[in-house]
C-alpha cells in the first residue's frame, strides 16, 4: 500500500514540471503565435492566387503547423467562412496557400492556424477585380465536318429530284391536242405543293430555336418567365456584404418566398395570382391589416396560422412589400 502511494506521489511530482512548462509556454503565448500573411492586394477573378503564411512562435518558426485559408462567401441567403486551401508549414515556418479566385465578393479573408492551443485567425482584405466566366458546360462531341448543312444538302437533293419528277408532268397537258385547261391544274398544284413543303422544311431547319444555351453561358437568351415581364432582373442573390447587415426587408424577401407568397403573388408581387397585386396601390395599408388578411385568407387564399408565420415575420414581409415598386 505504502509503496503504491509513494509511486503515485512520485508520478504526480514528475508531471508537475511538465504541467508547469505547458502553462508557461502555451497559455500566455496562445494568441502570441505570430501569423504573417503575404497576399496580393488585388486579384482578378480566374487568377491563381498564392498567399504565403509564416507562422512563428516567440520568434521560433512553427514547423509542421496546419494552416488554412478561408473567405466569407454568400449564396442563397446564407453566408459563412469557406475554406479554399490548406497547407502545412515547412522548416522556416512558412507555407504557401494556393487557390483559384472564383468568387467576386470574397474580399474578407482570413488565415486559420490550428496550433496546439486551438484555432488562431488572422484576418485581412483583398480587392477583387471582375474576370471572365470560369465554368463552362460541354456536351457531345464537336466533329468538324458534321453539321446541319449535310442535312440541308441531302434534303435539297431529295426535294429537287421529287420536284423534277413532278415538273416533268407539266409538259403533259401542254402537248395534248385539244388543250385541256382543267388538266393543267393538277400538275401545277403538285409542283406548288412540293415547293411549299420543301421550303417549309428548310425554314424549320434554319430557324431552329436555341435549346442548348448552357453551352454558351452569358449569351442572349430568348426564354424567360412571363411572371418576370416588366422587370429587368439582375441576379441579386444575397452577397456576403448584404448578409452582414440584415434588415427587415431582406428577411422579408426570404420569408415572402419561403412562406409561399411568391407562389401566387409572383416574385415581384405585381402580376397577381390569387389575390392579385399586393404592391403599390394594392399594397396592404398597415401591418395589422396584412396580419388580418393572412390569418383569415380572404378570396380563396389559404389562411396561414401563427405556426406558419408569426406576427414578427409578417411585419418583415410588410416591410419588404413596401420596398417593391408598383407595376414593376
Amino acid at each position: 500500500m505504502s509503496t503504491c502511494n509513494a509511486k503515485k506521489a512520485l508520478a504526480v511530482l514528475a508531471t508537475l514540471p511538465l504541467v508547469l512548462l505547458l502553462t508557461v509556454f502555451v497559455s500566455p503565448a496562445a494568441g502570441a503565435s505570430n501569423i504573417e500573411v503575404q497576399a496580393p492586394d488585388q486579384v482578378t477573378v480566374g487568377e491563381s492566387v498564392t498567399v504565403t503564411v509564416t507562422v512563428t512562435n516567440a520568434g521560433e518558426p512553427v514547423v509542421g503547423g496546419e494552416v488554412a485559408l478561408a473567405f466569407v462567401g454568400g449564396v442563397g441567403g446564407e453566408s459563412g467562412w469557406v475554406v479554399v486551401a490548406t497547407a502545412t508549414t515547412d522548416a522556416t515556418g512558412s507555407a504557401s496557400l494556393e487557390y483559384l479566385q472564383r468568387a467576386l465578393d470574397a474580399t474578407r479573408m482570413r488565415v486559420e492556424y490550428f496550433g496546439p492551443d486551438g484555432q488562431e485567425n488572422t484576418e485581412f482584405n483583398i480587392v477583387i477585380v471582375d474576370g471572365p466566366q470560369l465554368h463552362q458546360s460541354d456536351a457531345g462531341a464537336d466533329i468538324p465536318i458534321l453539321g446541319v448543312w449535310w442535312l440541308v444538302v441531302v434534303l435539297a437533293v431529295v426535294w429537287v429530284l421529287i420536284g423534277l419528277a413532278a415538273w416533268r408532268l407539266l409538259s403533259i397537258p401542254r402537248s395534248t391536242r385539244p388543250a385541256a385547261r382543267l388538266a393543267r391544274f393538277v400538275p401545277r398544284l403538285m409542283v406548288g405543293f412540293i415547293i411549299f413543303t420543301a421550303v417549309g422544311m428548310f425554314v424549320v431547319i434554319l430557324t431552329k430555336p436555341e435549346s442548348h444555351a448552357n453551352l454558351d453561358p452569358g449569351q442572349e437568351f430568348d426564354r424567360t418567365p412571363r411572371a418576370l415581364v416588366g422587370q429587368v432582373y439582375e441576379y441579386p442573390g444575397l452577397t456576403a456584404g448584404d448578409l452582414a447587415q440584415t434588415s427587415n426587408e431582406l428577411d422579408g424577401r426570404q420569408l415572402y418566398v419561403q412562406a409561399g407568397c411568391a407562389s401566387c403573388h409572383s416574385v415581384g408581387g405585381d402580376v397577381g395570382a390569387v389575390g392579385g397585386s399586393i404592391v403599390g396601390e394594392d399594397a396592404p395599408r398597415s401591418v395589422q391589416s396584412l396580419i388580418d388578411e393572412i390569418r383569415e385568407g380572404p378570396k380563396g387564399m389559404p389562411a396561414f396560422s401563427e405556426g406558419t408565420l408569426t406576427e414578427a415575420e409578417i411585419e418583415k414581409i410588410f416591410d419588404y412589400l413596401q420596398t417593391l415598386p408598383a407595376n414593376s
Partner: peptide, 17 residues
C-alpha cells in the same frame, strides 16, 4: 378529267412520263 391531265398517249407525253 383533271387527274388524267390531258393524256392522249402521244410521243412527248410518253417520254415525259
Amino acid at each position: 378529267q383533271s387527274l388524267a391531265i390531258g393524256w392522249d398517249n402521244n410521243e412527248t407525253q410518253r417520254r415525259s412520263l
